[in-house]
Design a protein around this nucleic acid. Sequence first.
DNA 1: TCATAAAATGTTTACGTTAACATTCCACGA
DNA 2: TCGTGGAATGTTAACGTAAACATTTTATGA
Lengths: 336, 336
Amino acid sequence: MARRPNTNASLRDVAKLAGVSAQTVSRVANGSDAVRSATRERVLSAMDQLGYRPSFAARSLRAGTYRSVGLVMPCDISATGRRFQLEGIATAAAERKYALTLVQLCDGDISLEDASRRMASLPVDGQILGLGSDPSDFATFVPPATIPTVIISTHPHPRCATVSNDQVACSTAIVDYLVSMGHREIRFAGGRREAPANIGRLEGWMAAMAAHGLACHEPLFGDWTADSGYRIGALLAHDDTCTAIYAGNDAMAVGVIYALRDAGRRVPEDVSVIGVDDSLVGVIPRLELSSYRFDDEQVGAIAFDLAINPPLGDVPPHTLVQGAVVKRSTVAPPRS
Amino acid sequence: MARRPNTNASLRDVAKLAGVSAQTVSRVANGSDAVRSATRERVLSAMDQLGYRPSFAARSLRAGTYRSVGLVMPCDISATGRRFQLEGIATAAAERKYALTLVQLCDGDISLEDASRRMASLPVDGQILGLGSDPSDFATFVPPATIPTVIISTHPHPRCATVSNDQVACSTAIVDYLVSMGHREIRFAGGRREAPANIGRLEGWMAAMAAHGLACHEPLFGDWTADSGYRIGALLAHDDTCTAIYAGNDAMAVGVIYALRDAGRRVPEDVSVIGVDDSLVGVIPRLELSSYRFDDEQVGAIAFDLAINPPLGDVPPHTLVQGAVVKRSTVAPPRS
DNA sequence: TCATAAAATGTTTACGTTAACATTCCACGA
DNA sequence: TCGTGGAATGTTAACGTAAACATTTTATGA
């Protein structure tokens, strides 16, 4: 068994072994066609023999670029939505042959400033800051001049490009869809009242209802859990006029459905329920829940492009990405 | 407003502006105390003025290390379990002040060879390959000599350190727990028959039952979905002797529960059901499902340490990480 | 056979940093 | 007043790579 080289071989080492110059080895390493095939063979064999691995450090020092973007996310990457954004960004990176440097920021240090400082010492050409709900220094943060910075946020940032899911459009699409099915009385069973996502959707629901000339009855709020959905569902079960409920997420939708059924109302025959996130596929037996699926792939792709290719203008762009309704359990309202 | 520097300032630029040598700037940048405070001030101000950002490339070229590890994961990072491992690894990295370079490998190219080749050109000191179920070249793969390689896999690899959740221990813990509650007839409602995780758990279930002198009745298999759990639950509902069911995951457990209830059996009063992964917290209203929670933080931490600090011996270590039963809905069997 | 162009290969240099060593400066005691 | 020693700062070199340019080799046609 060949003993392992205790240190990485460089172009020079390979060159010496192959009896050529370092530049020729470099050419082979980079697939230049200006190398005779006999030479190439010799070089490749030497590389193999020495276990040559090109130095990322030297290459990027030379090139002045890393072909990599940094991504900062809070600890609970698993939290719904965020993990799909991570996938979206990773996919976008892979497609463009970029690497992704992930930094998880936890508890104490959730500020854009900290996140950015951390990134500055890492090999990234741009950075995406995906720190959920409103870091403390959101308004005052000044991005470093040397790193194009993109923030994933519902609110536009004065100095950074921002991308986010379009919460208003989510409500619009859901209301439009339900109305097109014949529903007139669509209740809002939102998540945590102060959550940015919830605020945007509430706004969108009111606007969309108004646009259809429908009345917005008392919106209700929970905390994103199934139990909070159940409480709301129990309340709404007594409202016979209500034929459709727009829940803050899928867990809440499930809670609503259970409460309705426990109260003797049929879902979806009597009441249609729709959730958001499309996160519970295959989890509840015999339940194909209608939902709204955000296009996090798109969010990731756009954030990525903005980080790589920063826009020039004075006002940083705020891009909102729309998703689509996933139609499953919802049906037309009962004929009254 | 100061105009942005069009290119990154280097130590030299800062040195010139501050009227010192580059070495002094380097000392300031690295917090050396051998700099007079007046000088330090001058340098810091110059850095600020020029927006100086130390070059990761130059630093790591000098140091010969990147303080970063690579992680390869398949596209569906969101798939249960995997995303917690990602969190575990990211946390371990953060604690040790390492960066994490994430590469997502999709569809076509799920092989250790491809993954490893990809990593070789990135700034990593070690790599963790987390490619789910058995890449095609698992047995033949030879890790690069220059990059310590760790594989997250249920099977030990002949040439790489491996880490994984201990599927056998999962079964042991669950069976021990249920037996301690008084259950004697514990059925196995596993996931996909050929899945490595399922195989390990089946094995563990049989061993644990045997250890308690209990008979293993016909194990059943599904496909990890709630619906497949429902089918199995419907079957087992007619078996009056069965007082506990060990489901392949939480979704299947939910399916089993629903089938049992639909068949008129009470859960947990008549039959206790336990899942695996502890993934459905807050998703089903009024259901606190018992489950087994793997310690993916630990898996991540160990994989990370092995990647940073490769073991020396001839036989690469295979580390199994145990989790713990999360006790919630399960109760003692009914007195017969 | 030789001139000539084209192909193949080699040489030099700079990217930004920091260890190692060299030099300068300053405070302090004789 | 002048060493003297330590603190502060400067100089040199090397890390591995690839662009730019220089040189050598090979193929081609007269």
